[in-house]
Nucleic acid binder design. Structure first.
Lengths: 396, 396
DNA sequence: TTTACTTCGTTCATATTACGAACTAAATGG
DNA sequence: CCATTTAGTTCGTAATATGAACGAAGTAAA
């Protein structure tokens, strides 16, 4: 029981994880079935299921009759084994939610975003505590909190960088405060990355091991999933394609704001339309309406933005070669944008990368946060570092 | 002994792999030292080392005296446990080599490249057989062959695609012929990817878990290493940045040849110089000499190529966020190109990605092939699929 | 209703693997 | 020459997984 991987409890870990997986994935299932599918012997499975049951991770569901042979007792993941909280700090509001370990979202609330950093932290704290109270969840049953932020997250230092829309979030204070107040593990994650994980879990990414998710809204960002794993980059900067150089001129202003973002985003649509017409910038829905009505300038702007977006996708495709690109965000999810991007990609690439519309819309972020939280919980309680399946009170 | 991960031999596999690693990494080492470092008990280590010795993977080196305490018997990787062959099919010649499992290159030869596809295959076969014979290596001791090819390799189908300079290599016939004739496992791999693995193993990549390697020669290509693993892409197309769109015009010809390759490569230097001067294209060394002598046109061409290259690197940096970029290839490894690329990157990026000159030069490909071959051998003989460390005769 | 059959799940004897403690071996160093 | 130190082995014990046998609890059919 000393060495890192030395004792035979390693096998127990692996097999326990395996049995847990079968129960989670294949819903109510009998021990005999798990044994058949996993190749483990029946008693080993029985032992492991007993252990999982004692720790509260699985529970008996019922019995299966009607088939030939003895009645089978079936087991499933115990949703009450624990809970996770998720938050998504957007441009104008905060979305909050609690989910159980089966991934079921129990409740969701939206709060208008406060102006100041410390107020935002308080909003998160109170919001989550309210949700826990209303759903009768004890604090020690809260296993993980995941917060989506509009910025680059350094996972090692647990700090937020490059958060132009909400500079108050920068640094590591938010994570620390939430962790200490809620007495649970806290993960901060870039909002586009969360939406990407969401699409992977419940959206178009399910069929694909490697894909990119491009979110075009006010700004533009990307999530990169390679072999089923989100790639965050050496400094958490992966997918920040707003800074991708696509112009031929090198403009110091562009370097600041992000080269691609200045030509492929909601912001770009407004500026370009204003510049071309000489009129002060109108609203985005207005430009879209004008384009649909056949306005030449609006159509030209749409096309130019689609081209820049396609260029970024094509460039990315040569670097990481994904199976597919999922296009999302408030602009990117519009069908007229999707077709234009596809058209331009066809002109740029010999074998154009398939581009699909996203599936989850605005909920992708929260779903992704739940998925990430469950991943974290899973790797925490079923990794070789811990005693098998034992629920420890998560704290610093 | 039935289930996939079911029997306790799994632990044996893991611990055997662990002990093997310590012996390989820490040179001549005693069993007591391995026990201390790994956390395994002394007898477990003794058992495993005995097993490894019986299978021929390790051997006794000698004894350590002079220190306090009993003499220690030290062990090391047995270089004669097996051999790998490597080949690099270049533009004008084939490089061949054989190495032992310790990674030591025993002999290297160069052969002028034959004109026709089947002739190339024969050259490989005869060349490798000659090398084996000269170095007294029995065919059943040849555990792996790795061949570097100038094209995109589909690992699932074991086929070569997009090989414009050597179209005869396309398809899966080469792998099949080599495997059946040499009766060993064969891996084909893109030459830039091999150079990347080479830099990772023995070059600048050693200090970095995630980096990109840009090879600018006649054409331009890139290798992507993320968290220590070469990323090949869904179809083996990752890093084919020759096709990256960087121009503002969409030219069907450019789509064919590759947009970036037409502005950032040896080929581009020649064409641009010829266009600007109106003279027929000169040779590359000539253009470099002119630039050094202060010729304005030559300097302009250099700068323009460096800018395009920097743009591709900056674009890649926003997508994968590597720690560093290693610049190589016959053009890229020139210091005057390196500084220019660094200069341009400074203008394009807020926190410019560090760019370093490559370390291994033209041998990177062969080194990478050896590293890849050893990886393949390692995962073959020490993976849970096989009986621990048992040498099986590799065949179809 | 009884009997045969099928499948679920447990009990039991056995094999593998790892560990720690005790022991032997072989050197150094005064 | 003997204490000390380190290397390596022997041996008893504990954990884990297995397969075979067995008991349990249903269906199917005579």
């Amino acid at each position: 029981m000393r060495g890192v991987l030395s004792d035979s409890a390693l096998g127990r870990q692996v097999n326990g994880q395996l049995v847990m997986d079968y129960i989670v994935q294949h819903g109510p299932i009998s021990r005999a079935q798990v044994a058949k599918m996993s190749g483990l012997s029946k008693q080993t499975v029985s032992e492991l299921v007993l252990m999982l049951e004692e720790h509260g991770w699985v529970r008996e569901v019922g019995i299966v009759q009607g088939k030939l042979g003895r009645t089978a007792v079936t087991y499933e993941l115990n949703p009450e084994a624990g809970y996770v909280a998720v938050a998504d700090i957007g441009g104008t509001q905060i979305k909050l939610g609690v989910a159980d370990v089966s991934g079921k979202l129990l409740e969701e609330v939206r709060i208008p975003l406060a102006a100041e950093g410390q107020q935002v932290a308080d909003q998160l704290l109170h919001g989550i505590n309210d949700l826990l109270a209303k759903n009768g969840i004890r604090q020690d049953k809260l296993l993980q909190l995941v917060v989506g932020v509009p910025g680059v997250v350094d996972r090692q230092k647990k700090q937020v960088h490059h958060s132009p829309n909400l500079p108050a979030l920068q640094g590591g204070w938010l994570e620390e405060q939430l962790r200490e107040s809620l007495k649970t593990q806290v993960l901060l994650e870039n909002e586009v990355n969360l939406a990407t994980i969401g699409e992977q879990w419940k959206g178009k990414g399910q069929q694909h091991g490697s894909f990119i998710f491009v979110a075009m809204g006010t700004g533009i960002g990307m999530g990169v999933v390679l072999d089923g794993k989100l790639w965050r980059g050496a400094r958490g900067f992966a997918g920040e394609i707003g800074y991708m150089p696509v112009l031929d001129t090198i403009d110091p202003m562009v370097k600041q704001r992000g080269a691609l973002e200045s030509v492929a985003s909601g912001h770009a649509i407004l500026t370009q339309y204003a510049t071309l017409t000489g009129q002060p910038a109108t609203s985005l829905p207005e430009v879209f309406a004008l384009a649909e009505a056949g306005d030449a300038v609006a159509l030209g702007v749409m096309d130019s933005v689609a081209m820049s977006c396609a260029k970024a996708i094509a460039a990315t495709a040569t670097v990481v070669d994904p199976e597919v690109c999922i296009l999302g965000g408030s602009i990117g999810s519009r069908p007229e944008m999707l077709v234009r991007v596809q058209e331009w990609l066809g002109k740029m690439m010999d074998e154009p990368l398939p581009v699909e519309a996203n599936h989850l819309g605005k909920s992708a972020g929260l779903f992704g946060a739940i998925a990430l939280a469950l991943q974290a919980v899973n790797s925490r309680y079923f990794s070789p570092q811990h005693t098998f399946g034992e629920v420890v009170i998560p704290s610093a």
